[in-house]
């Protein structure tokens, strides 16, 4: 019994209950919507965290996959009359296919050169979104993406969308954790520590990196799918270089190599601008300062950092 209730499963259960409680108790639509955006960003950050935190490969172009997911579902549902639920696998598969093709040559690069390679890819995709206006609506954006529906349940009701997104977050967490604890996960951590040593141990590092890159792109596309159907409008600006950097920031601020870190990072970076409204003109200055301060004070990220603080206070208490 106790074995069945291992800590992962217990935390999932607590997480599930937390979703239910928040979903039932938060009255104001504004907060429900904000929490839904946090969920979408968590999926996004989780995708990149798998790549950066576990495999140690940086990507400065992840907004491209986010955008591919959003634009694919938008084009398929509006121009070709697909049901969104049919467009979802198409969006994810297309994003994964692109990741595979791009990853093949790009993942041979390492360190900042990999950053540069993914950045260039992200820029190109962004320009395609902007210039292919017959398909994507160009800079003015793509309007009229239909809301999600399952039978009688309409997800244009933001509360329903909240449950949908957060249950997806939970499933993504479980899948990611599974992956991390599998043979692939162990191999990835070996690559993270030393790629040469990993190769010497007989790990096919190229395939492993490619697999996680593709997985990560799939998660980003999933986030893009949700974004498109929640806002029902997309424009290239939402998937620009700045956004790629923001996703990286979420991962690092939250804590690399931690699925819960993605959650914390995404929460902080989504909430911060809303909290900082009061600063009006000073918002940017304060925002920048907070980013710097968090990193200076908690260089391991929020997850590790908060745990450290917790442990320190506890050990103090233990000493009489």
């Amino acid at each position: 019994m106790l074995k069945f209730l291992n800590r992962d499963r217990l935390s999932y259960a607590v997480f599930f209950i937390a979703i239910a409680i928040i979903g039932l108790s938060v009255e104001n639509y504004y907060y429900v919507q904000l929490l839904t955006f946090i969920g979408i960003n968590t999926i996004l950050a989780l995708g990149l965290n798998m790549l950066m935190g576990y495999a140690g490969q940086i990507s400065l172009g992840h907004a491209a996959f986010y955008g591919l997911g959003a634009y694919t579902t938008a084009v398929l549902t509006v121009h070709y009359g697909f049901s969104p639920w049919l467009a979802l696998p198409c969006a994810i598969l297309l994003s994964m296919l692109v990741a595979f093709l791009v990853g093949l040559p790009t993942l041979k690069l390492s360190g900042y050169y990999l950053g540069m390679g993914t950045l260039g890819f992200g820029m190109i995709v962004h320009i395609v979104f902007r210039e292919w206006s017959s398909m994507t609506g160009g800079s003015s954006g793509f309007i009229g993406i239909p809301p999600l529906e399952i039978g009688p349940v309409s997800f244009s009701q933001i509360r329903n969308f909240f449950y949908l997104v957060w249950l997806t977050v939970l499933i993504s967490f479980i899948v990611s954790k599974r992956l991390i604890h599998s043979r692939i996960g162990r191999a990835l951590r070996a690559i993270h520590d030393s790629e040469n040593a990993a190769r010497a141990m007989g790990i096919n590092t190229r395939n492993m990196k490619l697999e996680i890159f593709v997985f990560s792109a799939g998660l980003s596309a999933l986030a893009g799918f949700f974004y498109a159907h929640l806002v029902s409008f997309i424009s290239p600006g939402t998937f620009s270089f700045i956004v790629s950097i923001k996703i990286v920031t979420m991962v690092v601020i939250g804590g690399m190599a931690s699925v819960w870190g993605s959650l914390l990072g995404a929460s902080l970076l989504t909430m911060l601008p809303e909290w900082l409204h009061a600063f009006s003109e000073f918002e940017m200055v304060v925002y920048g300062l907070i980013l710097m301060l968090v990193m200076v004070l908690l260089p391991q990220g929020l997850t590790r950092g908060l745990l450290d603080i917790y442990e320190r206070t506890r050990s103090k208490k233990d000493q009489p």
Binding site: V248, I253, I290, M292
Partner: peptide
């Protein structure tokens, strides 16, 4: 790197 991102916004 993230600190420099923060600095750029600042």
């Amino acid at each position: 790197v993230i600190i420099t991102v923060g600095a750029s916004i600042f």
